[in-house]
């Protein structure tokens, strides 16, 4: 948020103008989309990785809505991602292979799960909240593990076939359709989330994050707003999971794992939380670094990720975007 905030030294009218103009699109916001478009033409051999990056970006962005904006610390966001992934996979295996409607159904299922678990989980605070989110995800994973007839158990769901997109575009071997499909879904989701965080509802979420007591004092329905944010975020995470199923034609138990909840948290924190674009920085960086480094040396990779987390907590709480902010502010101060 502080990226858009005017410097304190400016005249009040300028600050007011900055706040009022926060929702307007700025040129720099086109950057991720330019990069994504460029990637499609420049790196045709990496489109499979590219779609996964787009999917994880969507997932991290959904987490940003609950964690960064609403301030709900969750360790179980993979529950919704995994639900979306399994719903899409089960639909496809039972003959519903039309991708877009399946995506919508998977998103709705995850959103419903978000409402159902949110009604329970969001009543708690602090450690209990953290535990409940974690336990919900573990419970789902255990259920998916044991309900072999439905989910394939540890083997996962294999042999998924997806009908051509819009009845015309086959999911090809090179991943072109998958990439553009993921990109289109991400664009839509970004537009939605951007609308949400700049709406009065979005601002009240930020208020909840900063002080739920004050929000309650000014009459905001705290629980309902939290629940709504949780449900929207769950639905988006479910759509991300369904996208993964449709583009890779496979679902495994790891889509519900604690590791995935942790990984997406790391991605978001790496980019910077509560600023909408953290996901767009963190997810690609993490995925590319993992692709380059982890294959050669998975053990050390984990060590460096751990060290990076510790360093971020101690030295760079805003993640990469926070660092950029600080550098820009330092430069601005020097110019002034």
């Amino acid at each position: 948020m502080s990226a858009e905030a005017a410097p304190l030294t400016a005249a009040p009218s300028a600050a007011v103008a900055a706040i009022l103009g926060r929702h307007r699109l700025r040129a720099v916001e086109a950057l991720p989309w330019l990069c994504a478009g460029l990637g499609f033409f420049a790196l045709p051999d990496y489109l499979a990785l590219g779609s996964q990056i787009l999917i994880m970006t969507l997932f991290a962005m959904s987490l940003d809505l609950v964690l960064g904006y609403a301030g709900i610390v969750t360790l179980g966001h993979a529950a919704f991602f995994g639900t979306g992934a399994y719903v899409a996979g089960i639909l496809a295996l039972h003959g519903w292979s039309e991708p877009i409607s399946a995506l919508a159904i998977a998103g709705a299922a995850a959103g419903l799960l978000g409402v159902a678990t949110g009604l329970i989980v969001l009543r708690a605070r602090g450690l209990a909240l953290l535990m409940l989110t974690l336990v919900v995800a573990e419970m789902l994973q255990e259920a998916a593990n044991k309900l072999g007839w439905l989910t394939g158990g540890t083997d996962g769901l294999q042999g998924i076939t997806i009908a051509p997109l819009l009845g015309r575009f086959d999911f090809d071997l090179f991943g072109r359709t998958a990439y553009l499909y993921s990109l289109a879904v991400l664009l839509l989701a970004w537009w939605l989330v951007r609308r949400i965080v700049h709406s009065p509802f979005g601002h009240s979420l930020t208020g909840l994050r900063e002080s739920a007591i004050r929000m309650r004092a000014i009459g905001a329905p705290v629980f309902r707003r939290r629940l709504r944010a949780y449900a929207v975020s769950a639905a988006l995470a479910g759509i991300a999971g369904a996208l993964l199923t449709q583009t890779t034609q496979f679902v495994g138990l790891q889509v519900l794992s604690f590791e995935l909840s942790g990984t997406v948290l790391v991605m978001l924190v790496l980019g910077g939380i509560g600023r909408l674009y953290g996901a767009f920085i963190g997810a690609p960086l993490y995925m590319i670094a993992q692709d380059q480094l982890a294959k050669q040396d998975p053990v050390n990779w984990l060590f460096w990720i751990g060290l990076l987390l510790v360093l971020i907590v101690f030295f760079a709480r805003g993640g990469i975007l926070g660092l950029v902010d600080r550098i820009l502010m330092a430069m601005g101060r020097r110019c002034a």
């Binding site: 948290l265 984990l302 990720i305 990076l308 987390l309 510790v310 907590v313």
Partner: peptide
């Protein structure tokens, strides 16, 4: 985040 980082480092 800090403690998850510690866990990752310890595992590695």
């Amino acid at each position: 985040l800090f403690t998850i980082g510690l866990v990752f480092m310890a595992v590695a």
